[in-house]
Amino acid sequence: MGGFEGHLYPGLSLFFYGLYHTRLVSRALICNHHVQYLPRHPWSTGRWARLRQIYYVGLVKILSTFILVAQELHNIQGPLVLISKIYHQRNFLYHKQWQHLTLYMTFFLSGCVDVVSQNLLPQRSAALEQGAQALGMFLILPLMLSHLQDSEGVELLCHVLLIQALFLLLLVVIAELWAPNSLQLWVLKAFLYMITGSWLIQIGFMLFRPISGHKWMDDDKNDMVFVTTFFCWHVASLVVLMAWIYGFSFLWYCYVR
């Protein structure tokens, strides 16, 4: 996730995935049904009847992975190799890029499992989907921890706050394996996905395209303090956003539909 685009695109993917979960939770609370999935459309006849029965979440995950991988490869100068072979030395190359690609593969794995479970198996397996999601988060966390090695100052603090959100998200998805229909866990999961995504986008702007036009300074205490302040503002803003989505959903399902 190097550069501005490397933070923007993954952040948008995670943020919109969190919005999707917020929609699921809101509809489950209002319509009093299981939070796991949106109900299928009733079977109908016609050319496009089968397409109305397909769950597209897994396909969107796979498509997002291809976009993220293409963006990562586009930013690499020269061939992508794992180990250099200069004389008798063997050095690992592009360590951050390989970390990013490994991270994206967790999204791809989760998307493939979703597609198989939701559209190919005779009966949908929620445990399989949630297990793949938990495995992906378990792999992402150590990758992000090792990502801190070359960071300092503002960049280090930004990524520490990101890892804090990822760690809480890991705990939630693990707990969800034992309580798959817990509304409290789904609310937390939706919120943490959105905060992870929005904060990734914020990191991209802070490190590479500051809105003020002035670079954030590692030796400026005010800049360091405001990093944490901005993170808290993200948390508060997303709480308001989730409340607004629930309110809009309540009006939609109770008075419009």
Rank of each mutant, 00 (worst) to 15 (best):
N119K: 10
A179E: 13
V173Y: 00
S44P: 00
S212K: 06
Q118D: 06
H21Q: 05
L192S: 07
S110H: 08
G3I: 04
L157I: 09
A179V: 08
A134G: 07
H159I: 00
I163R: 00
D223S: 10
L207Q: 06
Q36M: 09
V35M: 10
T65F: 09
N32I: 03
K215P: 13
D223V: 14
L170T: 04
W199S: 07
W216V: 10
K221C: 10
I174Y: 01
G58K: 09
W178F: 14
F16H: 02
Y94T: 05
P180A: 08
L177H: 01
F15P: 08
K61Q: 03
T22M: 14
Q164E: 02
K96W: 11
L63D: 02
V187M: 14
E152Q: 10
L183M: 07
L169E: 02
F231L: 08
G136H: 07
M217L: 15
W233Q: 07
V60W: 09
S146I: 00
L82I: 14
G3Q: 02
F208N: 05
L161I: 06
D150M: 04
G204H: 02
I86A: 04
I30V: 14
G131K: 08
V225H: 13
L139Q: 06
L200A: 12
T65Q: 02
M224Y: 14
H159P: 01
L161W: 00
L14Q: 09
R47P: 00
E152I: 00
N32F: 05
L51R: 03
